[in-house]
Amino acid sequence: MSMISVENLDVWFGRGRDRVDAVKGASFAVKRGESFGLVGESGSGKSTILRAIMGLAPDWSGQITVDGKAISGRREKGFYKQVQMVFQDPYASLHPRHSVDQVLGETLLLHGFTDIDDRVVKLLDDVGLGGKFRFRYPHQLSGGQRQRVAIARALAAEPEILLLDEPTSALDVSVQAEILNLLADLRVEHGLTYVMVSHDLSVVGHMCDQLAVMKDGEIVEIMAVDALRAMKAVHPYSQHLLEASV
């Protein structure tokens, strides 16, 4: 059974003649423990799909199912214990005046944990930061360390699904390798399911089992990573994208 499935998803912004259809009739399914990639150019609607799943894009129609339960309207509290998101830019997604301890502590409190002190230490260990980073502020951390904090924050709720929105595009290649390794390890340790958005085909090829290629709000092709490696794209747009990135 699939962990996340999206069927015939439409997402739009604005109304009347200002209406923009950001996602049109997208359907895909991700099995438990699998990692699924969404690739496409900027403006193709790949991040919007993640935002619609999280409830950050209010106007959508179609069906989103998480672990067998259909989602509609306002998300229940339990939903956010199951699904968490890591955003693109670690420079923008952490509060500049909250220390790492505050960021993680507050998240844990909101999720109803009581043994906050132990959990903060464990989370920092999990993402490879260690205790000495606990009382630092975001400006005292490098880009890679910040993204580790953002990942720790997402793991705080002990979710089963992580939605990753371009988790490494703001980072250097050497730091990107560290973060991708960390994400791969965490997936195995915690049995996580990933949906990952990226514009970089080689990153998706490294991380994912299956991927969907998007263009102008529509999914033009869903293929396995082996087909991608063998350069066996069917749709002309995915072929074009593949040529441009090799």
Binding site: S174, Q176, A177, L201, S202, G205, H206, L228, R229, V246
Partner: peptide, 10 residues
């Protein structure tokens, strides 16, 4: 440290 499409690695 760059991931490559033609040479997959764990």
């Amino acid at each position: 440290s760059l991931p490559r499409l033609d040479e997959p690695c764990a």
